[in-house]
Nucleic acid binder design. Structure first.
Lengths: 206, 206
DNA sequence: CAAAATAGTGAATGAGGCTTCACTTTTTGG
DNA sequence: CCAAAAAGTGAAGCCTCATTCACTATTTTG
Protein backbone atom coordinates (compact mmCIF):
# COMPACT_ATOMS: atom_id res chain seq x y z
CA UNK A 1 0.00 0.00 0.00
CA UNK A 2 1.14 3.51 -0.69
CA UNK A 3 2.93 5.46 1.95
CA UNK A 4 0.72 7.94 3.73
CA UNK A 5 1.92 10.65 6.06
CA UNK A 6 0.46 10.57 9.53
CA UNK A 7 -1.03 13.68 11.04
CA UNK A 8 1.93 14.05 13.36
CA UNK A 9 4.41 13.75 10.52
CA UNK A 10 2.49 16.26 8.46
CA UNK A 11 2.75 18.73 11.27
CA UNK A 12 6.41 18.17 11.84
CA UNK A 13 7.09 18.81 8.17
CA UNK A 14 5.02 21.94 8.24
CA UNK A 15 6.87 23.07 11.34
CA UNK A 16 10.19 22.47 9.60
CA UNK A 17 9.05 24.49 6.65
CA UNK A 18 8.13 27.34 8.94
CA UNK A 19 11.41 27.15 10.75
CA UNK A 20 13.24 27.34 7.46
CA UNK A 21 11.25 30.36 6.36
CA UNK A 22 11.81 31.96 9.73
CA UNK A 23 15.54 31.37 9.63
CA UNK A 24 15.72 32.71 6.11
CA UNK A 25 13.74 35.79 7.04
CA UNK A 26 15.95 36.48 9.98
CA UNK A 27 19.13 36.12 8.02
CA UNK A 28 18.09 38.12 5.02
CA UNK A 29 16.82 40.95 7.18
CA UNK A 30 20.26 41.19 8.69
CA UNK A 31 22.65 40.94 5.81
CA UNK A 32 20.67 40.68 2.61
CA UNK A 33 20.58 37.81 0.18
CA UNK A 34 24.31 37.58 -0.24
CA UNK A 35 25.01 36.80 3.33
CA UNK A 36 22.09 34.47 3.81
CA UNK A 37 23.91 31.23 3.00
CA UNK A 38 21.92 28.09 2.53
CA UNK A 39 24.14 26.40 5.06
CA UNK A 40 23.46 29.05 7.63
CA UNK A 41 19.75 28.93 7.02
CA UNK A 42 19.87 25.18 7.49
CA UNK A 43 21.73 25.19 10.75
CA UNK A 44 19.65 28.06 12.03
CA UNK A 45 16.61 25.94 11.30
CA UNK A 46 18.17 22.87 12.86
CA UNK A 47 18.44 20.90 9.64
CA UNK A 48 21.10 19.92 7.16
CA UNK A 49 21.66 21.78 3.91
CA UNK A 50 20.38 18.88 1.92
CA UNK A 51 17.09 18.89 3.77
CA UNK A 52 16.30 22.40 2.61
CA UNK A 53 16.01 21.10 -0.89
CA UNK A 54 13.14 18.88 0.13
CA UNK A 55 11.18 21.97 1.01
CA UNK A 56 12.33 24.44 -1.59
CA UNK A 57 13.73 23.70 -5.02
CA UNK A 58 16.36 26.43 -4.86
CA UNK A 59 17.65 29.34 -2.90
CA UNK A 60 15.83 31.73 -5.15
CA UNK A 61 12.53 29.96 -4.56
CA UNK A 62 13.01 30.00 -0.84
CA UNK A 63 13.70 33.68 -0.70
CA UNK A 64 10.96 34.60 -3.09
CA UNK A 65 8.59 32.85 -0.71
CA UNK A 66 10.04 34.74 2.21
CA UNK A 67 9.65 38.04 0.46
CA UNK A 68 6.13 37.35 -0.69
CA UNK A 69 4.98 36.30 2.72
CA UNK A 70 6.40 39.42 4.31
CA UNK A 71 4.93 41.70 1.72
CA UNK A 72 1.53 40.06 1.69
CA UNK A 73 1.35 40.68 5.38
CA UNK A 74 2.29 44.31 4.94
CA UNK A 75 -0.12 44.88 2.10
CA UNK A 76 -2.95 43.42 4.11
CA UNK A 77 -2.38 45.99 6.80
CA UNK A 78 -2.19 48.82 4.33
CA UNK A 79 -5.37 47.71 2.62
CA UNK A 80 -7.14 47.73 5.91
CA UNK A 81 -6.10 51.31 6.45
CA UNK A 82 -7.24 52.36 3.03
CA UNK A 83 -10.59 50.75 3.52
CA UNK A 84 -11.07 52.22 6.97
CA UNK A 85 -12.67 55.54 7.77
CA UNK A 86 -11.09 58.92 7.14
CA UNK A 87 -10.10 61.19 4.32
CA UNK A 88 -7.61 60.26 1.63
CA UNK A 89 -5.13 62.45 3.41
CA UNK A 90 -5.61 60.42 6.59
CA UNK A 91 -5.23 57.22 4.67
CA UNK A 92 -2.02 58.41 3.13
CA UNK A 93 -0.58 59.58 6.39
CA UNK A 94 -1.55 56.43 8.22
CA UNK A 95 -0.34 54.11 5.53
CA UNK A 96 3.09 55.67 5.44
CA UNK A 97 3.33 55.98 9.20
CA UNK A 98 2.23 52.39 9.70
CA UNK A 99 4.79 51.06 7.31
CA UNK A 100 7.60 53.09 8.76
CA UNK A 101 6.67 52.23 12.32
CA UNK A 102 6.56 48.55 11.57
CA UNK A 103 9.85 48.65 9.73
CA UNK A 104 11.56 50.47 12.55
CA UNK A 105 10.28 48.12 15.14
CA UNK A 106 11.40 44.72 14.12
CA UNK A 107 13.41 42.65 11.79
CA UNK A 108 10.74 43.30 9.26
CA UNK A 109 12.54 42.67 6.07
CA UNK A 110 10.51 44.27 3.39
CA UNK A 111 13.07 47.00 3.41
CA UNK A 112 16.14 44.85 3.69
CA UNK A 113 15.18 43.42 0.36
CA UNK A 114 15.08 46.80 -1.21
CA UNK A 115 18.60 47.82 -0.36
CA UNK A 116 20.71 44.90 -1.45
CA UNK A 117 24.20 45.06 -0.01
CA UNK A 118 27.15 44.24 -2.23
CA UNK A 119 30.78 44.13 -1.42
CA UNK A 120 31.69 46.08 1.69
CA UNK A 121 34.00 48.57 0.02
CA UNK A 122 31.66 49.39 -2.78
CA UNK A 123 28.77 49.63 -0.43
CA UNK A 124 30.63 52.07 1.73
CA UNK A 125 31.37 54.22 -1.27
CA UNK A 126 27.77 54.08 -2.33
CA UNK A 127 26.61 55.17 1.07
CA UNK A 128 29.00 58.04 0.97
CA UNK A 129 27.70 59.16 -2.36
CA UNK A 130 24.13 59.13 -1.27
CA UNK A 131 25.17 61.05 1.77
CA UNK A 132 26.76 63.62 -0.46
CA UNK A 133 23.54 64.03 -2.36
CA UNK A 134 21.75 64.31 0.92
CA UNK A 135 24.08 67.07 2.03
CA UNK A 136 23.22 69.17 -0.96
CA UNK A 137 19.55 68.96 -0.16
CA UNK A 138 20.05 69.51 3.52
CA UNK A 139 21.83 72.69 2.71
CA UNK A 140 19.02 73.88 0.49
CA UNK A 141 16.43 73.09 3.09
CA UNK A 142 18.34 74.76 5.88
CA UNK A 143 18.69 77.91 3.86
CA UNK A 144 15.01 77.85 3.08
CA UNK A 145 14.10 77.46 6.71
CA UNK A 146 16.38 80.33 7.68
CA UNK A 147 14.65 82.42 5.01
CA UNK A 148 11.24 81.48 6.27
CA UNK A 149 10.54 80.10 2.86
CA UNK A 150 10.09 76.63 4.33
CA UNK A 151 8.60 75.67 7.67
CA UNK A 152 10.68 74.06 10.39
CA UNK A 153 11.19 70.36 9.69
CA UNK A 154 13.46 67.42 10.27
CA UNK A 155 16.15 68.28 7.76
CA UNK A 156 17.72 64.84 7.74
CA UNK A 157 14.46 63.11 7.14
CA UNK A 158 13.39 65.48 4.41
CA UNK A 159 16.69 65.16 2.60
CA UNK A 160 16.53 61.39 2.80
CA UNK A 161 13.01 61.43 1.45
CA UNK A 162 14.01 63.60 -1.47
CA UNK A 163 16.90 61.38 -2.44
CA UNK A 164 14.72 58.32 -2.11
CA UNK A 165 11.87 59.86 -4.01
CA UNK A 166 13.72 60.73 -7.14
CA UNK A 167 15.76 57.56 -7.07
CA UNK A 168 12.73 55.37 -6.96
CA UNK A 169 10.92 57.47 -9.51
CA UNK A 170 13.82 56.88 -11.85
CA UNK A 171 14.52 53.23 -11.45
CA UNK A 172 11.61 51.74 -9.56
CA UNK A 173 8.99 49.50 -11.08
CA UNK A 174 6.28 52.08 -10.52
CA UNK A 175 8.14 54.64 -12.52
CA UNK A 176 6.28 55.32 -15.72
CA UNK A 177 8.25 54.00 -18.65
CA UNK A 178 10.02 56.94 -20.10
CA UNK A 179 10.16 57.00 -23.83
CA UNK A 180 9.99 60.22 -25.70
CA UNK A 181 11.08 63.54 -24.36
CA UNK A 182 7.49 64.49 -23.68
CA UNK A 183 7.05 61.75 -21.09
CA UNK A 184 10.44 62.55 -19.68
CA UNK A 185 9.65 66.20 -19.26
CA UNK A 186 6.48 65.30 -17.53
CA UNK A 187 8.31 63.00 -15.15
CA UNK A 188 10.91 65.60 -14.35
CA UNK A 189 8.17 68.05 -13.58
CA UNK A 190 6.17 65.62 -11.50
CA UNK A 191 9.12 64.57 -9.37
CA UNK A 192 10.43 68.03 -8.74
CA UNK A 193 6.96 69.36 -7.95
CA UNK A 194 6.52 66.51 -5.52
CA UNK A 195 9.69 67.36 -3.68
CA UNK A 196 9.08 71.07 -3.62
CA UNK A 197 5.55 70.66 -2.35
CA UNK A 198 6.74 68.27 0.32
CA UNK A 199 9.36 70.63 1.64
CA UNK A 200 7.25 73.74 1.33
CA UNK A 201 4.33 72.11 3.04
CA UNK A 202 6.13 69.93 5.56
CA UNK A 203 4.72 70.32 9.00
CA UNK A 204 1.27 70.71 7.50
CA UNK A 205 0.66 67.72 9.62
CA UNK A 206 -1.98 65.68 11.41
CA UNK B 1 70.13 54.14 -15.68
CA UNK B 2 66.65 53.97 -14.30
CA UNK B 3 63.73 53.44 -16.56
CA UNK B 4 61.79 56.60 -17.25
CA UNK B 5 58.44 56.78 -19.00
CA UNK B 6 58.41 58.91 -22.09
CA UNK B 7 55.72 61.48 -22.60
CA UNK B 8 54.09 59.31 -25.22
CA UNK B 9 54.05 56.30 -22.95
CA UNK B 10 52.65 58.34 -20.11
CA UNK B 11 49.79 59.38 -22.31
CA UNK B 12 49.08 55.92 -23.54
CA UNK B 13 48.85 54.65 -19.99
CA UNK B 14 46.54 57.47 -19.03
CA UNK B 15 44.42 56.72 -22.06
CA UNK B 16 44.23 53.07 -21.07
CA UNK B 17 43.16 54.02 -17.60
CA UNK B 18 40.42 56.16 -19.03
CA UNK B 19 39.30 53.43 -21.35
CA UNK B 20 39.09 51.03 -18.44
CA UNK B 21 37.04 53.46 -16.40
CA UNK B 22 34.82 54.13 -19.39
CA UNK B 23 34.24 50.46 -20.03
CA UNK B 24 33.49 49.84 -16.37
CA UNK B 25 31.08 52.74 -16.27
CA UNK B 26 29.28 51.52 -19.33
CA UNK B 27 28.94 48.00 -18.04
CA UNK B 28 27.87 48.87 -14.55
CA UNK B 29 25.27 51.28 -15.80
CA UNK B 30 23.73 48.46 -17.77
CA UNK B 31 23.67 45.50 -15.43
CA UNK B 32 25.05 46.59 -12.08
CA UNK B 33 28.16 45.36 -10.37
CA UNK B 34 27.30 41.70 -10.62
CA UNK B 35 27.22 41.62 -14.35
CA UNK B 36 30.22 43.82 -14.84
CA UNK B 37 32.87 41.09 -15.08
CA UNK B 38 36.48 42.02 -14.99
CA UNK B 39 36.97 40.03 -18.17
CA UNK B 40 34.30 41.98 -19.94
CA UNK B 41 35.67 45.29 -18.77
CA UNK B 42 39.06 44.25 -20.06
CA UNK B 43 37.96 43.24 -23.51
CA UNK B 44 35.69 46.27 -23.75
CA UNK B 45 38.75 48.38 -23.01
CA UNK B 46 40.89 46.45 -25.46
CA UNK B 47 43.17 44.94 -22.83
CA UNK B 48 43.68 41.64 -21.11
CA UNK B 49 42.28 40.87 -17.67
CA UNK B 50 45.72 40.83 -16.19
CA UNK B 51 46.43 44.34 -17.40
CA UNK B 52 43.55 45.76 -15.37
CA UNK B 53 45.44 44.90 -12.24
CA UNK B 54 48.25 47.21 -13.23
CA UNK B 55 45.80 50.06 -13.08
CA UNK B 56 43.53 49.05 -10.23
CA UNK B 57 44.36 46.74 -7.35
CA UNK B 58 40.96 45.05 -7.34
CA UNK B 59 37.51 45.06 -8.81
CA UNK B 60 36.18 46.90 -5.80
CA UNK B 61 38.77 49.65 -6.20
CA UNK B 62 38.01 50.06 -9.85
CA UNK B 63 34.32 50.44 -9.29
CA UNK B 64 34.68 52.71 -6.32
CA UNK B 65 36.67 54.99 -8.59
CA UNK B 66 33.98 54.81 -11.23
CA UNK B 67 31.29 55.67 -8.75
CA UNK B 68 33.21 58.52 -7.20
CA UNK B 69 34.00 60.08 -10.54
CA UNK B 70 30.38 59.96 -11.59
CA UNK B 71 29.11 61.36 -8.34
CA UNK B 72 31.70 64.09 -8.11
CA UNK B 73 30.58 65.28 -11.47
CA UNK B 74 26.97 65.26 -10.40
CA UNK B 75 27.64 67.02 -7.14
CA UNK B 76 29.54 69.73 -8.94
CA UNK B 77 26.51 70.51 -11.01
CA UNK B 78 24.22 70.52 -8.03
CA UNK B 79 26.53 72.81 -6.10
CA UNK B 80 26.51 75.23 -8.97
CA UNK B 81 22.75 75.35 -8.85
CA UNK B 82 22.70 75.91 -5.14
CA UNK B 83 25.17 78.73 -5.40
CA UNK B 84 23.34 80.34 -8.29
CA UNK B 85 20.60 82.94 -8.02
CA UNK B 86 17.05 82.23 -6.92
CA UNK B 87 15.08 81.25 -3.87
CA UNK B 88 15.64 78.05 -1.92
CA UNK B 89 12.55 76.73 -3.57
CA UNK B 90 14.06 77.37 -6.98
CA UNK B 91 17.26 75.71 -5.94
CA UNK B 92 15.41 72.67 -4.74
CA UNK B 93 13.32 72.37 -7.83
CA UNK B 94 16.25 72.87 -10.15
CA UNK B 95 18.50 70.48 -8.29
CA UNK B 96 15.99 67.66 -8.43
CA UNK B 97 14.99 68.40 -12.00
CA UNK B 98 18.59 68.58 -13.12
CA UNK B 99 19.46 65.26 -11.57
CA UNK B 100 16.46 63.51 -12.98
CA UNK B 101 16.93 64.98 -16.41
CA UNK B 102 20.55 63.93 -16.52
CA UNK B 103 19.74 60.44 -15.30
CA UNK B 104 17.03 59.97 -17.86
CA UNK B 105 19.19 61.13 -20.67
CA UNK B 106 22.22 58.98 -20.65
CA UNK B 107 23.92 55.99 -19.30
CA UNK B 108 24.54 58.04 -16.23
CA UNK B 109 25.15 55.43 -13.66
CA UNK B 110 24.69 57.13 -10.37
CA UNK B 111 21.35 55.43 -10.27
CA UNK B 112 22.43 52.04 -11.48
CA UNK B 113 24.58 51.87 -8.42
CA UNK B 114 21.70 52.50 -6.14
CA UNK B 115 19.48 49.69 -7.32
CA UNK B 116 21.73 46.68 -7.27
CA UNK B 117 20.26 43.76 -9.20
CA UNK B 118 20.50 40.29 -7.71
CA UNK B 119 19.35 37.02 -9.09
CA UNK B 120 16.72 37.40 -11.78
CA UNK B 121 13.92 35.54 -10.01
CA UNK B 122 14.37 37.33 -6.76
CA UNK B 123 14.66 40.63 -8.48
CA UNK B 124 11.42 40.05 -10.31
CA UNK B 125 9.69 39.26 -7.05
CA UNK B 126 11.14 42.34 -5.47
CA UNK B 127 9.91 44.49 -8.30
CA UNK B 128 6.48 43.03 -7.93
CA UNK B 129 6.42 43.81 -4.26
CA UNK B 130 7.39 47.38 -4.73
CA UNK B 131 4.75 47.61 -7.40
CA UNK B 132 2.21 46.31 -4.93
CA UNK B 133 3.14 49.00 -2.47
CA UNK B 134 2.89 51.51 -5.25
CA UNK B 135 -0.61 50.31 -6.08
CA UNK B 136 -1.79 51.00 -2.59
CA UNK B 137 -0.61 54.57 -2.79
CA UNK B 138 -1.89 55.10 -6.27
CA UNK B 139 -5.28 54.10 -5.07
CA UNK B 140 -5.15 56.56 -2.19
CA UNK B 141 -4.04 59.35 -4.44
CA UNK B 142 -6.67 58.64 -7.06
CA UNK B 143 -9.38 58.72 -4.46
CA UNK B 144 -8.05 61.97 -3.08
CA UNK B 145 -8.01 63.53 -6.52
CA UNK B 146 -11.57 62.42 -7.19
CA UNK B 147 -12.54 63.99 -3.85
CA UNK B 148 -10.78 67.21 -4.71
CA UNK B 149 -8.72 66.70 -1.61
CA UNK B 150 -5.59 66.53 -3.75
CA UNK B 151 -4.78 68.43 -6.91
CA UNK B 152 -4.39 66.67 -10.25
CA UNK B 153 -0.98 65.04 -10.51
CA UNK B 154 0.97 62.24 -12.10
CA UNK B 155 -0.24 59.39 -9.95
CA UNK B 156 2.49 56.97 -10.97
CA UNK B 157 5.23 59.43 -10.26
CA UNK B 158 3.81 60.47 -6.91
CA UNK B 159 3.37 56.88 -5.80
CA UNK B 160 6.91 56.05 -6.84
CA UNK B 161 8.20 59.05 -4.94
CA UNK B 162 6.36 58.02 -1.82
CA UNK B 163 7.70 54.50 -1.87
CA UNK B 164 11.19 55.79 -2.53
CA UNK B 165 10.94 58.44 0.13
CA UNK B 166 10.08 56.21 3.01
CA UNK B 167 12.40 53.47 1.88
CA UNK B 168 15.36 55.75 1.79
CA UNK B 169 14.39 57.42 5.01
CA UNK B 170 14.45 53.99 6.62
CA UNK B 171 17.57 52.43 5.25
CA UNK B 172 19.54 55.21 3.61
CA UNK B 173 22.70 56.69 4.99
CA UNK B 174 21.05 60.03 5.57
CA UNK B 175 18.40 58.47 7.72
CA UNK B 176 18.88 59.67 11.25
CA UNK B 177 19.99 56.79 13.41
CA UNK B 178 16.92 55.61 15.18
CA UNK B 179 17.42 54.65 18.77
CA UNK B 180 14.78 55.28 21.33
CA UNK B 181 11.11 55.48 20.61
CA UNK B 182 11.21 59.24 20.77
CA UNK B 183 13.49 59.48 17.75
CA UNK B 184 11.45 56.87 16.00
CA UNK B 185 8.22 58.70 16.56
CA UNK B 186 9.77 61.83 15.24
CA UNK B 187 10.97 60.04 12.13
CA UNK B 188 7.59 58.51 11.52
CA UNK B 189 6.03 61.90 11.78
CA UNK B 190 8.58 63.59 9.58
CA UNK B 191 8.27 61.05 6.81
CA UNK B 192 4.54 60.90 6.74
CA UNK B 193 4.25 64.68 6.89
CA UNK B 194 6.63 64.89 4.00
CA UNK B 195 4.53 62.56 1.89
CA UNK B 196 1.25 64.16 2.79
CA UNK B 197 2.52 67.63 2.07
CA UNK B 198 3.94 66.49 -1.24
CA UNK B 199 0.71 64.97 -2.41
CA UNK B 200 -1.50 67.72 -1.05
CA UNK B 201 0.63 70.39 -2.57
CA UNK B 202 1.70 68.68 -5.78
CA UNK B 203 1.16 70.89 -8.76
CA UNK B 204 2.14 73.88 -6.64
CA UNK B 205 4.76 74.13 -9.26
CA UNK B 206 7.16 76.47 -11.01
C1' DC C 1 9.43 -7.33 12.97
C1' DA C 2 10.68 -6.90 7.92
C1' DA C 3 10.23 -4.44 3.81
C1' DA C 4 9.20 -0.24 1.47
C1' DA C 5 8.99 4.44 1.36
C1' DT C 6 10.21 8.82 2.79
C1' DA C 7 13.20 12.16 5.47
C1' DG C 8 17.56 13.80 6.65
C1' DT C 9 22.74 14.02 6.38
C1' DG C 10 26.94 16.35 5.02
C1' DA C 11 30.88 15.67 2.17
C1' DA C 12 31.80 15.92 -2.71
C1' DT C 13 30.72 18.28 -6.97
C1' DG C 14 30.68 22.03 -10.01
C1' DA C 15 30.10 26.56 -11.67
C1' DG C 16 31.19 31.30 -11.69
C1' DG C 17 34.56 34.74 -11.55
C1' DC C 18 38.31 37.40 -9.22
C1' DT C 19 43.13 37.27 -8.98
C1' DT C 20 47.76 35.60 -9.89
C1' DC C 21 51.82 34.38 -12.37
C1' DA C 22 55.11 32.44 -15.73
C1' DC C 23 55.74 34.07 -19.96
C1' DT C 24 55.83 37.35 -24.30
C1' DT C 25 56.06 41.86 -26.14
C1' DT C 26 57.23 46.58 -25.96
C1' DT C 27 59.80 50.44 -24.25
C1' DT C 28 63.96 52.62 -22.48
C1' DG C 29 68.87 53.77 -21.99
C1' DG C 30 73.57 53.07 -23.53
C1' DC D 1 71.62 46.53 -31.46
C1' DC D 2 71.69 44.74 -26.51
C1' DA D 3 70.28 44.33 -21.88
C1' DA D 4 67.21 45.89 -18.29
C1' DA D 5 62.74 47.44 -17.05
C1' DA D 6 57.98 47.78 -17.67
C1' DA D 7 53.65 46.58 -19.75
C1' DG D 8 50.63 43.17 -21.40
C1' DT D 9 48.82 38.32 -21.88
C1' DG D 10 45.51 34.72 -20.68
C1' DA D 11 45.30 30.32 -18.86
C1' DA D 12 45.53 28.23 -14.29
C1' DG D 13 44.73 28.75 -9.31
C1' DC D 14 41.68 29.47 -5.88
C1' DC D 15 37.74 30.63 -3.16
C1' DT D 16 33.05 30.84 -2.35
C1' DC D 17 28.88 28.95 -2.30
C1' DA D 18 24.57 26.46 -4.30
C1' DT D 19 23.31 22.07 -5.44
C1' DT D 20 23.61 17.01 -5.59
C1' DC D 21 23.93 12.32 -4.09
C1' DA D 22 25.30 8.03 -1.86
C1' DC D 23 24.23 6.88 2.45
C1' DT D 24 21.85 6.58 7.19
C1' DA D 25 17.73 7.21 10.04
C1' DT D 26 13.00 7.35 10.62
C1' DT D 27 8.26 6.36 9.48
C1' DT D 28 4.69 3.60 7.49
C1' DT D 29 2.50 -0.72 6.17
C1' DG D 30 1.45 -5.68 6.39
Amino acid sequence: MAYQRSEKMEQRLAANRERILGAARKLVSKGGLREARMGTVASEAGLSTGALYRYFPSKADLFVDVLNAAVDHEILILDKIVEGPGSARDHLRNAVASFVRRALRGPNLAYAFIAEPTEADVDAARMLCRKQFGEVFKRIIRTGIANHEFPEQDVDASAACIVGAFTEALVGPIAPSTRGTKTQDRLIDAVSSFCVAAVVGAGTGA
